[in-house]
Amino acid sequence: MADPFLIGDGMTGGYGPVDILHNCTISVEKGQIAVIVGPNGAGKSTAMKAVFGMLNLRGGAVRLNGEDITRLTPQARVRKGMGFVPQTHNIFTSMTVEENLEMGAFIRTDDTIRDTIEQIYTLFPILKQKRNQAAGELSGGQRQQVAVGRALMTQPSVLMLDEPTAGVSPIVMDELFDRIIEIARTGISILMVEQNARQALEIADKGYVLVQGANRFTDTGKALMADPEVRRSFLGG
């Protein structure tokens, strides 16, 4: 059977001598949304970083569109089509919104960068209004839009988001999730870690519940939402 578009397959590894992930598998298909949820300390962000090449694996492999990229650096993975938005320190606060977006195009050599910026302004209209404002002066939700926009400037085939709605209001969270759905509809695969598990699983094609660095439940978002044990243990009933 062919691999999913992106897969971290049987990943075991961590930081130094301590393994945080234990035979953990995470994957996402083309144009779909996969969500990683679980309790604090479950290894959710570690799994994301492992897929992006930010820690060494002692076991398992990462493959993108059938190609083994396990040994590639994060920078090389960006050139292969992966975009990553970390939870914090994900914008240049002293630069304007537009300068942040331009920085996202650093690997590109084509002449359609301006077109991509306009596409991002269509996706996030508030950024167009504030394009000449320092990104550090924006609200939390607007900063996240800048961070996502900057990652989209590389024209990725996979967009990875670590806690994209952390610290934002419920209204802003809903709006961000709506934009994430729009991005996936363009054919970009979305892999994200999210604390707001219930809301994230509602938009997920596929969900992963991790516990202590290992897969505990894997299913469609809808199926996980309907699973009594998942609801009781991880979604507050």
Results as ranks from 00 to 15, higher is better:
L57A: 03
L57M: 13
L57S: 01
L57V: 01
R58K: 15
R58M: 00
R58W: 01
R58Q: 07
R58S: 05
G60W: 03
G60L: 03
A61V: 02
A61N: 04
V62Q: 07
V62W: 01
V62I: 06
R63A: 10
R63V: 04
R63D: 00
L64C: 06
L64P: 01
N65E: 14
G66L: 07
G66V: 04
G66T: 04
G66W: 07
E67Y: 01
E67K: 15
E67H: 08
E67G: 00
E67M: 05
D68E: 11
D68K: 11
D68T: 11
D68V: 10
I69M: 09
I69R: 08
I69T: 06
T70I: 08
T70P: 08
T70M: 11
L72V: 03
L72I: 03
L72Q: 14
T73R: 15
P74A: 07
P74M: 09
Q75M: 13
Q75E: 13
Q75I: 04
A76Q: 15
A76Y: 00
V78C: 15
R79A: 15
R79C: 10
K80L: 12
K80P: 03
K80M: 14
G81P: 04
G81T: 04
G81K: 07
G81A: 03
M82H: 05
M82V: 10
G83E: 04
G83L: 06
G83S: 08
G83C: 06
G83Q: 05
F84T: 01
F84C: 00
F84P: 00
V85E: 04
V85I: 11
P86F: 05
P86I: 05
P86D: 06
P86V: 06
Q87G: 10
Q87W: 05
Q87F: 07
Q87I: 07
Q87A: 10
T88M: 03
T88E: 14
H89Y: 12
H89K: 15
H89G: 14
N90S: 14
N90A: 13
N90D: 13
I91C: 09
I91P: 05
I91D: 07
I91W: 06
I91R: 12
F92P: 01
F92W: 08
F92Y: 14
F92M: 10
F92L: 14
T93I: 10
T93A: 15
T93F: 08
T93S: 15
S94C: 01
S94T: 14
M95A: 13
M95E: 09
M95F: 14
T96S: 15
T96Q: 11
T96G: 11
T96F: 13
T96I: 09
V97D: 03
V97L: 07
